[in-house]
């Protein structure tokens, strides 16, 4: 696999030497279904290259890695569409005076989702990519957003506001304890730990 230096790509590895990333400018990048997959944060998009320039101690099969890659692109394509749909909602979109969505809250929501998925990858909890449903960003009348993962196994909401603390609430039939977090600071790690508990109990 060739590294395109013209696109200012660089490689980094996480601590367990399992995952590597190439950082790439999204606007220079052309998506191709036969090429490796991409995922993003609000400003920078990443290529996910688990097998590229790796040592021989890869702890997962190539088949699984290919699946993770495709799952990631599926997730981030959906999120991109969600964000664009929210961006297009004009003032009074609910017919009861709802404000348009500010760029600040859209970017914050993207950042949180990106942190969750980066956290899952960095913690090497790749099976969670398939365990978690694809998230939706649901608009609230007051200009806030609910990032939502929901299926029969999990119902997890991260309520994002640009003025109030972030609230996360999670429920699952596989876990008695309900996740409840309210914080100004990063909460992704606690959320991932809770998701993993649900996943662990479901097996």
């Amino acid at each position: 696999m060739m590294l395109d230096l013209k696109k200012n790509v660089y490689l980094r590895k996480n601590q367990d030497n399992f995952i590597s990333y190439k950082k790439i400018n999204w606007f220079d990048m052309q998506y191709n279904d036969s090429s490796p997959d991409y995922y993003f944060d609000p400003y920078t998009y990443y290529l996910f290259f688990p097998s590229w320039e790796q040592s021989n101690d890869i702890s997962d099969s190539q088949e699984n890695i290919n699946y993770y890659n495709h799952r990631l692109i599926e997730i981030y394509r959906h999120i991109s569409n969600n964000i664009e749909n929210l961006r297009q909602l004009k003032k009074n979109w609910d017919e009861q005076g709802a404000p348009a969505f500010e760029s600040e809250i859209l970017m914050l929501s993207e950042k949180i989702i990106n942190n969750v998925y980066n956290g899952i990858i960095k913690k090497n909890l790749m099976p969670l990519l398939s365990f978690l449903p694809i998230p939706s960003l649901l608009p609230i009348s007051d200009g806030t957003i609910d990032i939502t993962w929901r299926n029969s196994s999990i119902f997890l909401v991260i309520h994002v506001s640009s003025s109030d603390p972030i609230i996360a609430v999670g429920k699952s039939p596989f876990l008695k304890s309900i996740l409840k977090i309210e914080s100004e600071s990063a909460i992704e790690s606690s959320i991932i730990n809770w998701i993993f508990k649900v996943f662990d109990n479901s097996n």
Binding site: P133, L138, V157
Partner: peptide, 19 residues
């Protein structure tokens, strides 16, 4: 419909969204 148009299952949603 603007409340639900973002949902991944839209327009054939089974569940009521919380928003």
């Amino acid at each position: 419909k603007n409340f639900v148009i973002n949902d991944s299952e839209f327009p054939n949603m089974q569940k009521v969204p919380q928003n």
